[in-house]
């Protein structure tokens, strides 16, 4: 479904991604991890064209993201994205947050958009908060709404950019629960996270990045039980043994 072929990216002279290649099959859950600054967030932002790449090719469901003149808005509306800081529209109620792109991008009639929004809010346990504004809610609640907002677009795949790293510890679980459920339903997911418990539980594969390059790309069990590279062993020992 998601094909990343030999992509490289520079910010000025600084190379952030070096010749990254990987695939995510339909229904597959891939966790991307690595030390900060390793390029993992940049990698998934390239998948929906939020960040341009200078070399290589990315295609999603057969559509080339990196082609010149690619219809990115149409493509993006089919890929859900969840951000570290939620990025809910602060001037809109929760319900309007879920309806905006449905109505303006997918051109759904109002009633249909509201019905879809209410159904998804119920699913993430936020049905009672539809009329509230984002800043009246906790981080965990906001992130669950952000997930619902992406799901309202009926995406073919979901990208998560450190969805729990801005949350208080006790709120991480409520967000991960939603994500686990989503994974078990067969959603194609690329998740940048440090939550290794989540990775072990639902990921089919783990990609480990360092210095803008993909160092390991392996089945989850194999990655945790015997990581090949020294860098990944070191990383795992630091985040698992505490």
């Amino acid at each position: 479904m998601i094909d990343i072929e030999n992509i490289s990216k520079w910010y000025g002279d600084f190379q952030v991604l070096t010749d990254c290649t990987t695939q995510v099959a339909k229904g597959e859950v891939v966790v991307v991890c690595g030390p900060s600054g390793s390029g993992k967030s940049t990698l998934i932002k390239c998948v929906n064209g939020l960040e341009p790449v200078q070399q290589g090719r990315i295609s999603v469901d057969g559509d080339d993201v990196t082609a010149k003149g690619a219809n990115l808005t149409a493509l993006r509306s089919r890929i859900g994205m969840v951000f570290q800081h939620f990025e809910l529209y602060p001037h809109m109620s929760v319900l309007e947050n879920l309806c905006l792109a449905q109505e303006k991008v997918l051109k759904r009639p109002r009633a249909e958009a509201v019905a879809r929004a209410e159904k998804l809010l119920a699913r993430v346990g936020m049905a009672d908060h539809a009329a509230k504004f984002p800043s009246q809610l906790s981080g965990g609640q906001q992130q669950r709404i952000a997930i619902a907002r992406s799901l309202a677009m009926d995406p073919i795949a979901m990208l998560f950019d450190e969805p729990t790293s801005a949350l208080d510890p006790e709120m991480i679980k409520e967000v991960l629960d939603v994500m686990v459920e989503l994974a078990q339903e067969g959603m194609t997911m690329m998740v940048v996270t440090h939550e290794m418990g989540f990775a072990r539980k639902v990921a089919d594969r783990v990609i480990f990045m360092d210095n803008g390059a993909i160092v390991e790309d392996r089945q989850t069990a194999a990655f945790f039980d015997n990581p090949e590279s020294e860098r990944a062993q070191d990383f795992l020992s630091k985040i698992l043994d505490h």
Partner: peptide, 12 residues
Amino acid sequence: GLSAAATAHGLS
């Protein structure tokens, strides 16, 4: 991040 979110949802 807000305009990135809007862009990511397909808004022009």
